[in-house]
Design a protein around this nucleic acid. Structure first.
Length: 299
DNA sequence: GCCGGTCAAGGTCTT
DNA sequence: AAGACCTTGACCGGC
């Protein structure tokens, strides 16, 4: 079981997601910023290995404006050795590095321009992971998209468009249940037609489900992962106390997490913590896991 | 230096 | 019809 966090290590004081305004774009600026982001990314991975955090979600801003039409720089070629260095380090230390394109990536949008932009964005993510020489267990996770007034049609459109994607994308693509539109059951309908693996998000499931208990919903999602996909990925977050439903908590509640692990006992999976204090919560989770392991080994 | 407005992109829901 | 929210900082101009 690998655990990790998203995008940025707060302790280190660098970010691998540094970007700039579109108005400031120049080829040189893009390569300089990306080069610095790669240095920070490697530093972050060093920190993670030192703390036994073997999963890390790379920010989509690692290469700013990579899929924007303004960009004509072949960043993967220009910085090839530096991408390879990150990938080599990841392989040496058995790290898993998924990515998660943002809210504007909508494969099933009825708008052709939005759809085309989404494919460009996915191509960028695939190219980035390819430049690192990482295998297909390193996923690109997206949400299904919008409903556009007709969920059946929108699911059908997702499936049609998935079939048109290049293999460089499909071999890495995974979908995640969301909190308002597409439940685990909805994702399963897409999986059945496409074979795409499903990333289980516990908080989203709590907000949108078909009445299945956590363990059952997780098991359904976990069964969608094939040999080439690796161990199932899950996103873990907890509800902020008293805040609007769906708001992420500031830090990991260790008791809640321990209960979650208990509920899913017997399964193997890798966990990304989507919690505001980033590595602090991942380290707390590490301690929870280490305690449980000690208990188990003493039995 | 620090503050606050702003920044590529969409969709859904609330008021 | 307009604004909030999702998520999410980080840039950048103005002081």
């Amino acid at each position: 079981m690998k655990i990790g966090y998203v995008s940025t290590n707060i302790t280190l004081g660098c970010t691998s997601a540094r970007t700039f305004r579109l108005a400031s774009y120049s080829p040189e600026r893009l390569l300089e910023t990306t080069g610095n982001n790669l240095i920070c990314l490697l530093n972050t991975l060093h920190f993670n290995v030192a703390h036994d955090l073997r999963l890390f979600r790379i920010s989509s801003d690692l290469v700013p404006f990579a899929s924007h039409e303004i960009n004509e720089v072949d960043w993967a070629a220009a910085l090839a050795p530096r991408f390879a260095a990150v990938g080599n380090y990841a392989r040496q230390h058995d790290l898993r590095l998924p990515m998660h394109p943002g809210q504007y990536t909508l494969l099933n949008s009825p708008d052709e321009k939005t759809y085309a932009n989404s494919v460009r964005e996915l191509s960028y993510h695939a190219q980035l992971l390819d430049a690192m020489g990482l295998d297909t267990t390193h996923k690109i996770q997206i949400h299904v998209g919008g409903v556009y007034g007709d969920k059946d049609a929108s699911i059908a459109r997702f499936i049609e468009r998935y079939a048109l994607l290049p293999e460089a994308i499909t071999r890495r693509l995974a979908i995640e249940n969301d909190d308002r539109l597409y439940s685990v059951q909805d994702c399963l309908r897409i999986h059945t037609e496409t074979g795409i693996p499903i990333i289980f998000d516990n908080l989203h499931h709590a907000l949108l489900n078909a009445g299945e208990p956590l363990r059952e919903a997780f098991a359904l999602a976990a069964a969608t992962w094939g040999a080439a996909d690796g161990v199932p990925l899950v996103d873990y977050s907890s509800q902020a106390e008293g805040a609007r439903l769906g708001n992420h908590a500031e830090t990991l509640d260790e008791a809640d997490f321990a209960a979650y692990l208990e509920t899913l006992s017997g399964f193997d999976f890798d966990i990304t913590f989507e919690i505001k204090d980033k590595e602090t919560s991942a380290l707390k989770a590490r301690r929870v896991l280490d305690r449980l392991e000690r208990v188990t080994s003493n039995e």
